[in-house]
Design a protein around this nucleic acid. Structure first.
Lengths: 193, 193
DNA sequence: AGATTATTAGAGGTGGGTCTCTAATAATCT
DNA sequence: AGATTATTAGAGACCCACCTCTAATAATCT
């Protein structure tokens, strides 16, 4: 029915991830991505409404890939404390396995132009976040810390703290040391006690 | 001996801080800063060698202001555990008092173009960081955790974790809740136990 | 084979930011 | 008062990225 595409969406997003990891969200320009895969700029605009849409897609694909494994870890285990330890660990091990995508997570949706996103993109982002916060809320209830301060502390232990472990090393340009997973897990456990 | 300046350096840096806090480091353009204070673009280049130099100066002034109080808190107290609690607390209370400058701290030197800085600027940044790491190393020794893992954990407790508390709220566009200082202090203490 | 159509291909307009350059200005110093 | 000089003032060149637009292309479908 039509000419087959030479450049598919994932190929473009992969290049965008590489650029964002090495030069930050600001380095993800339409021309830079096009050049990285050898495509003319016109093809970029055939796939994405504009730079804003490209930034939203690359951010959302990355976050959704991360959240998939993260939520699976949180839900798969009956014992809440074990689930919590596993979640903290997952943040680090996922980052070790996907260092470029992890570099994206260390920024925020705001840096990827969230303020200018379409309603559809914003909805997708909210939906993912809500699922994570719901799971953390359940876990907080199971641990008997369902008030605001308890939830804040658990969010810190299961998301922010492991991400900080990753950030400290990656921002320094260094790979994650072997004990990073242990560190994140032990610290998370200490915060939950 | 000469015509007196109408725009002094601090006035320019103040405007740069405001722009960076609201639009990120990318929003700090020479023209935007000039427009913000009503100066012609030529005056900007009279004070700063270029955009790179402006970004370095605004980052360094902010970090040095923060580190001053942070180091004072770490050194002023004999009991290492009390000093540690106070340091964690300081990160949050300083951010509450200087929300715009705190917004800068949540980025990193890399976002302010560190790769392109002059040698002099890079040296200033390194020197400040070294003083902080030295102080944390001393505190780790006093707490009997002088190995790599111990220092990592203490760095996490005294810097990264309090910053995460600040980041979570400020990135959501919300002011810091009243219990933020307590949260940071309690979590830091939990990590040191 | 011929029509159809999604896609490639890339030239070029537009806008905004960086930086340079020249002239005017307003202080201090002799 | 007049010379000196750091600074203001702003016009404009240059560059890069975003985005649009038209034509060519290469598959599938009848």
């Amino acid at each position: 029915m039509a000419r087959p595409p030479r450049f598919d969406i994932d190929q473009i997003l992969d290049a965008a991830v590489r650029l964002a990891a090495s030069a930050g969200p600001g380095g993800v320009t339409m021309s830079a991505v096009a050049q990285a895969i050898g495509a003319p700029s016109g093809s970029m605009y055939h796939r994405f409404a504009g730079r804003t849409a490209l930034l939203a897609e690359v951010w959302l694909r990355t976050v959704e890939r991360f959240q998939e494994g993260y939520l699976a870890g949180l839900h798969g285990e009956a014992d809440p404390l074990t689930a919590a330890r596993r979640a903290a660990r997952h943040v680090v091990s996922w980052s070790r396995a996907q260092p470029e995508e992890a570099a994206l997570l260390l920024y925020g949706a705001a840096e990827f132009g969230r303020a200018d996103w379409s309603e559809e993109h914003t909805r997708r982002a909210d939906s993912g976040n809500e699922r994570v916060y719901a799971a953390i809320g359940e876990l907080a209830a199971a641990l008997g810390a369902a008030d605001d301060r308890g939830r804040d502390r658990i969010t810190l232990a299961l998301i922010d703290l492991p991400l900080s472990v990753v950030r400290r090393h990656m921002r320094a340009g260094a790979p994650l040391p072997p004990h990073a997973e242990d560190l994140a897990e032990e610290c998370a456990a200490a915060l939950l006690a």
